[in-house]
């Protein structure tokens, strides 16, 4: 597809950013997002978001609401900016020196890019699950207990035990690991590790969970488990998920946002996006003409 440039962020991770704009049907003329990007009871509200990596602009004028207890899926071809946008939502892009974010990003009316705002409590409220399962090289128990410990949620062992158990139960991992909580988290299978990471995230009771392609490193059975889990979690949490799998987006999300070359093309109810897309680019993508 389009050419991408790899820029290394501060943590050494490769970040794919868009380089050349390859001719696609009238992409430069798109200034409006079609569909319904905004909603009534928005948990997070983003307006006119621009993201730059150095001189290159990676996100153009994105406006999107994420409603309370809603699952929003973000889809689009590689390098379209969906991961970049997701990482803006809890300021994980701060670790990239050359990354600059403009526009208004609000969590319940609070500007998250306010210089006075502390990112530590923000990230406690907006948790993140990453593409590759990344448990700490510690025991299963310590993995889950780490967040509550650093945030000082409890000082009592019994309470901490309870948090660990509920988190693991919510991540539907408890039954598999309850007899070996002290064994290393890295010894679990890939799918179990990812569920451990989800348990670790929900242990600090965030309001929003961001998921950056959480199933891309997993086999279909583990993927199915995670998808099931996402559905359960949406009862208590607001979830934004980036995915490469359109089937996954269709299965788990309420609304779907289609990104293309840094622009938000279309946001609609998931069913509508996959059955009757409004924009020709969305249609081209979901029918597999590119992606």
């Amino acid at each position: 597809m389009e050419a991408t440039a790899n820029i290394e962020n501060a943590t050494g991770e490769k970040v794919e950013i868009m380089n050349d704009v390859v001719a696609q049907p009238n992409v430069d003329d798109i200034h409006e997002t079609v569909g319904s990007p905004f909603c009534e009871n928005a948990k997070m509200a983003m307006r006119d978001v621009q993201v730059y990596y150095g001189d290159k602009q990676a996100i153009f004028d994105v406006g999107l609401d994420i409603g309370k207890n809603e699952v929003v899926a973000m889809i689009g071809p590689s390098g379209c900016g969906k991961s970049t946008f997701l990482r803006c939502l809890n300021r994980m892009n701060d670790t990239i020196d050359i990354c600059r974010v403009e526009g208004s990003l609000k969590l319940e009316g609070q500007d998250i890019y306010d210089p006075k705002l502390d990112v530590v409590p923000l990230r406690a409220r907006v948790g993140m699950v990453f593409q590759k399962p990344n448990p700490f090289p510690k025991s299963i128990y310590d993995n889950v207990a780490y967040g509550p410990r650093i945030h000082g949620l409890t000082n009592r062992k019994a309470e901490l035990d309870e948090i660990v158990e509920t988190s693991l139960r919510k991540a539907s991992l408890w039954d598999e690991v309850k007899d070996r909580l002290q064994s290393p988290g890295t010894g679990l299978s890939g799918g179990q590790q990812q569920r451990l990471c989800i348990a670790r995230t929900i242990a600090v009771s965030p309001e929003v969970i961001l998921m950056d392609e959480p199933c891309s490193a997993l086999d279909p059975i583990a993927t199915a488990k995670i998808e099931e889990l996402i559905a359960e979690l949406s009862e208590n949490f607001t979830i934004a998920i980036v995915t490469h799998s359109m089937q996954q987006a269709a299965r788990v999300s309420n609304r779907t946002a289609y990104f293309h070359l840094g622009k938000l093309i279309e946001v609609n109810d998931t069913e509508k996006v996959f059955t009757n897309p409004e924009h020709e680019l969305t249609e081209a993508y979901i029918t597999g003409r590119f992606g």
């Binding site: 994980m92 670790t95 990230r123 948790g127 990453f130 990344n134 700490f136 650093i150 945030h151 990471c197």
Partner: peptide, 13 residues
């Protein structure tokens, strides 16, 4: 880097 992200992602300073 995944370990750093994991720590930062749950709100470690």
């Amino acid at each position: 880097p995944s370990i750093r992200e994991a720590a930062l992602g749950i709100g470690a300073s």
